[in-house]
């Protein structure tokens, strides 16, 4: 592959990467985890948070604006609760409309070439269910193969999902604060180019032992 991880250099201010988080949650008012995650995201400098359901409640996208926004960032992240082993519907519609032929793929100069793509998701089931022996049979990375292939076709660097399992009980079990802190840490590391892309790329999920892939900070 030509797109070695190291090609995603920041072209933002001071060599930093600019991060676009496309956030999709159809009933945010009931959210326990994604709400706090989104709030924390909005506070990280250099990150653009877009609430897709708020901006395009009728799934009617302004394709030019969406494409311009992609061009202005070096990292693209889908942030969502896992619905039927995939994204909520609006993100699929977004892919269908925004990632046009001639813009994202099959183009002389694919617009997203060399950018980093990954998911930040929450799943209701326990982590143990996401393996060959569990009731979901597949790992979370395997379930998201369509997104991984989408990224590959567009020439993007794919990172495994930043995932929280057992999300329905995370708040009462006191796992939320740590998860939010990890998320902010990952965003800052990606922004400042302190995240070891090569080491992270083969993982099943991004947030296993962050110390092993993040330098400093």
């Amino acid at each position: 592959m030509s797109n070695a991880p190291e090609s995603a250099r920041g072209s933002g201010e001071g060599g930093r990467r600019r991060i676009l988080v496309l956030f999709a949650h159809p009933s945010l008012e009931r959210s326990e985890v994604n709400g706090p995650l989104a709030e924390a995201t909005a506070r990280v400098e250099g990150v653009t948070l877009v609430d897709l359901y708020a901006e395009s409640p009728t799934f009617d996208f302004n394709v030019d604006r969406e494409q311009a926004r992609l061009l202005a960032h070096e990292v693209i992240c889908f942030m969502y609760p896992l619905y039927w082993y995939s994204t909520p519907a609006i993100l699929k519609e977004w892919q269908d409309l925004v990632l046009e032929r001639g813009f994202a793929y099959d183009a002389a100069a694919p617009a997203l070439q060399g950018k980093i793509f990954f998911s930040a998701l929450t799943a209701g089931g326990p982590e143990a269910a996401y393996c060959a022996a569990g009731y979901n049979h597949l790992t979370i990375r395997e379930l998201l193969y369509p997104l991984e292939q989408m990224a590959r076709l567009c020439g993007m660097i794919y990172l495994p999902p930043f995932a929280l399992f057992g999300a329905r009980t995370a708040l009462e079990e006191g796992r939320l604060a740590g998860h939010v802190a990890d998320w902010v840490r990952v965003l800052e590391a990606l922004r400042d180019d302190r995240l070891d892309l090569a080491a992270a790329a083969p993982r099943t999920k991004l947030n296993d032992d962050l110390n092993a892939i993040i330098r400093g900070g």
């Binding site: 302004n62 394709v63 030019d64 604006r65 311009a68 269908d96 409309l97 046009e100 032929r101 001639g102 813009f103």
Partner: peptide, 18 residues
């Protein structure tokens, strides 16, 4: 109809200003 065009060069209308 962008759903079927799938090609920026064939757009028949002026995009809105940024």
């Amino acid at each position: 109809d962008r759903m079927q065009l799938h090609d920026r060069t064939e757009r028949g209308w002026t995009p809105p200003s940024r």
